[in-house]
Simulated assay, not measured.
Amino acid sequence: MSQQALNDLLAQGGGALAAPLPAEELQYVPEPLRPLISKRNGFYAFGPALYVRPWGAGYQGNCLWWNAKDLWRQEYKGVGDDLLFFAEDLFGFQFGLARSGFYSFDPETTEREFMAKDVFGWAQKILSDADNLTGAPLGDAWIEQNGPLPLGTRLAPVVPFFLGGEFEVDHLNPIPEVELMRFRGDVFQQTKDLPDGAQVDLGF
């Protein structure tokens, strides 16, 4: 897959969220992510819709912090532990790296979908269907109506999407990202073995 796709994705993004990593630190970034992180260490693209996390312990929202087991991942009780989450869409749906390649990950249901074997293919996939894979049009509409999306939040309905929450501006609220993922992990645990039509305590 051509490196051009990655360059084109970066052209849709804003400035780096963190300083470039020196070579001695870049070696600790998983090899499949190095072409991305070495070019721009964290950024937003398509407005705030696509969020690629910076690498490096000193930066707010960094990838290592986000993947810590005691932050929100414990709510999933091991599901998705083979994925390193490095980016997300407007709604906090994750993009992750596994040994076999790059995946999208639905934190409400834990369903995953293979996207590409390398970061260039992942970038091409994002570019080919950016509206659906990032949520950018809804992000633009929400910002026009409400102003900038607060830092550290993602947009989500009170009722999870898979339970009938609507992809509509008036039904979306900015939720702190860690709080949102913990909530989704809890709902997943409640619903994963339930029959259709069972009651769920959202508590949110």
Results as ranks from 00 to 15, higher is better:
L97I: 11
G13W: 08
L90A: 05
L17C: 04
G14V: 09
D70Q: 11
G56M: 06
M181F: 01
G203H: 13
F105R: 07
G164Q: 05
S38L: 00
A116V: 02
G121I: 03
M181S: 09
A136W: 02
V119Q: 01
Y76I: 05
T153N: 12
Q60G: 01
E31M: 09
G13P: 00
L50R: 04
P20G: 03
V169E: 00
W55T: 06
R184I: 01
E31D: 14
L138S: 12
A116L: 05
W65L: 05
A49H: 03
A11L: 00
P160E: 07
G78C: 09
C63H: 03
L149Y: 04
G135K: 10
T191I: 10
W66N: 06
P160D: 06
A19M: 06
N67K: 07
K77Q: 13
N67R: 07
E31C: 07
N146C: 13
A130S: 14
P137T: 13
F91I: 04
A156P: 15
D106L: 02
V29F: 03
V119W: 00
Y28I: 01
D193E: 14
R154H: 09
A23R: 04
A68V: 09
A68P: 06
Y51D: 15
K125R: 14
G152V: 08
L9N: 00
G15L: 09
L50N: 04
F93A: 10
N67S: 08
I126G: 02
G56C: 07
E24W: 12
D106W: 05
C63G: 06
F102T: 00
G58R: 00
Q189L: 11
F43N: 03
Y51A: 15
G164V: 08
G197I: 15
V158H: 10
L172E: 02
Q199C: 12
W122Y: 01
R34M: 05
S100P: 02
D196R: 13
V159M: 08
F161H: 02
P157M: 12
A49E: 01
R184K: 10
L71Y: 06
E111I: 08
F188S: 04
D118C: 02
F120G: 06
K69L: 15
F161V: 01
Q124I: 01
G14H: 01
D131Y: 13
S128W: 13
L138V: 13
Q94C: 14
G78E: 15
D106E: 13
G47K: 00
G61N: 04
G78W: 11
Q145F: 15
N67I: 11
G56W: 07
F102N: 01
E24M: 15
A45W: 02
A123L: 06
F161I: 10
Q94P: 01
I175F: 11
L33D: 02
A49V: 05
L127F: 14
Q60S: 08
N62A: 06
L149I: 09
D82I: 03
K117P: 06
L149A: 04
N173H: 12
F183P: 01
N62M: 07
I143V: 11
P137S: 15
A87K: 01
F183R: 05
W72P: 04
L163K: 08
W122A: 02
G47D: 11
P48G: 06
G135T: 13
F204G: 12
Q199I: 11
W122G: 08
P148D: 05
Q4C: 11
